[in-house]
Simulated assay, not measured.
Amino acid sequence: MGDGDHPNKAPPAASAMNLPPGTYIIRVPNDQIICHPPPPNPNIQKRRTFAAASHPRHARRCCTCLRCFSFLLFLLLSPLIAVGVVYFVCDPNLPKFTVDRLSVDGFAFNSTSPLTVNPEFHVTVRAENPNNIIGFSYSAKRSFVTVSLESNTLCRGSLPSFYHGPRNVTVFKTALSGYEIRLSEPFWKSLMGLQGRKSVPITVDFGVPVRAGLGGMKSWTFEMKARCGLTVDKLGVDSRITSKICRVHLVNFFFFPPS
Rank of each mutant, 00 (worst) to 15 (best):
I33T: 07
V169Q: 08
S219C: 06
A10Y: 07
V83F: 09
L77N: 05
I34A: 07
V171C: 09
A127R: 02
L80V: 10
A52I: 04
K198W: 08
T153D: 05
A82L: 14
V210Q: 04
Q195N: 03
S78Q: 11
G22K: 01
P95S: 04
V251M: 11
S219E: 04
R197S: 12
F253R: 08
I245R: 12
R126K: 13
R67E: 09
A212D: 00
R48W: 14
T112V: 07
L250K: 03
C35T: 09
M17K: 11
V147S: 05
K225F: 04
G229T: 07
K141D: 15
T98D: 10
L19K: 09
R67H: 13
K218F: 09
I81E: 05
F109W: 06
L94R: 01
F206C: 01
V145R: 00
C246I: 03
P38M: 12
L149R: 08
S219V: 02
I33D: 06
G4S: 15
I133D: 09
F253C: 14
T116I: 07
S243G: 05
H122T: 12
W220G: 13
D5F: 07
A16L: 06
L75C: 14
S78A: 15
F88W: 14
Y179H: 15
R48N: 15
P92R: 00
C246W: 03
S78P: 01
P21D: 15
K244V: 05
P114E: 04
K173N: 15
L183E: 00
C35W: 08
V169N: 07
K189V: 07
I34Y: 13
N131E: 01
L80D: 06
T98W: 01
G236W: 02
S151D: 10
S103I: 04
N30F: 07
T174V: 05
F222T: 14
F162K: 03
S239R: 03
F254E: 07
L235M: 08
I245M: 13
V145T: 04
N118C: 08
L214P: 02
V28H: 11
Y24K: 13
V251D: 11
T146S: 14
S161K: 06
A16H: 09
A14H: 11
S259L: 11
V208H: 01
S15K: 11
V86I: 14
K46V: 05
G178C: 04
N41C: 07
P37A: 10
N131M: 02
S113L: 09
S151E: 11
